[in-house]
């Protein structure tokens, strides 16, 4: 220290006063700004942007539309092609299917028509295993499988984390239709053979 102690003494006081004032200015600014906290159960970041901005006035934004929450499947346009199950690196998608009426379904994304002749009787996604990589979403020809913005799925039972997209009733109905179709084709085949 080249300076004399006396000058240093007053410089210390000056610097203390200035730095305290600086710090107190910052805290006062924060004091008058809006809190950042999202009051979670009431203000859910998964809400739509309008609803979220109605409830919450801070600087944070709701979840992006591309947020990868739980997977969901729109069963009426699913062609049970199993492209998603094959794409899944950890095999958390399980699909079983039967043949059904030949129809055409419109893609969710670009309204392009795709023929549909297979119907899933089981479409389970183990969301506990899912790592939200999005590889299943990409190959889907109709955009039936996609991410939602839901993220609340805590459970005491790991079994509850397996999402079933086809219920038993529906599966039985489809199996029945498939059985009838098979019988019909068999009859037709028999006739043709004769």
């Amino acid at each position: 220290m080249a300076q004399s102690g006396f000058i240093n003494y007053f410089r210390n006081i000056y610097e203390a006063a200035v730095s305290i004032a600086k710090g107190m200015r910052i805290t006062l600014k924060t004091f008058f700004s809006k809190p950042v906290t999202v009051q979670y159960p009431e203000e859910n970041p998964a809400f739509t942007a309008e609803e979220f901005s109605r409830l919450y006035s801070g600087p944070l934004k709701p979840l992006s539309g591309r947020y990868r929450g739980f997977l969901t499947v729109q069963m009426d346009i699913c062609t049970a092609c199993e492209a998603c199950a094959r794409a899944c690196p950890i095999a958390c998608i399980a699909i079983e299917h039967v043949k059904g009426e030949r129809t055409k379904v419109k893609s969710r994304l670009d309204a392009k028509e795709t023929p549909k002749l297979r119907y899933a009787t089981k479409f389970d996604i183990d969301i506990g295993k899912c790592m939200y990589c999005g590889l299943c979403v990409e190959p889907c020809p109709t955009g039936a499988i996609y991410f939602t913005r839901t993220f609340e799925g805590a459970s005491y039972d790991p079994g509850e984390l397996i999402l079933h997209f086809v219920n038993e009733e529906e599966a039985n109905r489809l199996k029945e239709i498939a059985r009838k179709l098979e019988e019909d084709t068999k009859k037709a085949d028999d006739k043709g053979a004769m």
């Binding site: 805290t27 924060t30 004091f31 700004s33 809190p35 950042v36 906290t37 009051q39």
Partner: peptide
């Protein structure tokens, strides 16, 4: 409350 607001919380 003051402490909260000064830390940007409630």
């Amino acid at each position: 409350r003051v402490a909260g607001r000064m830390m940007s919380r409630f």
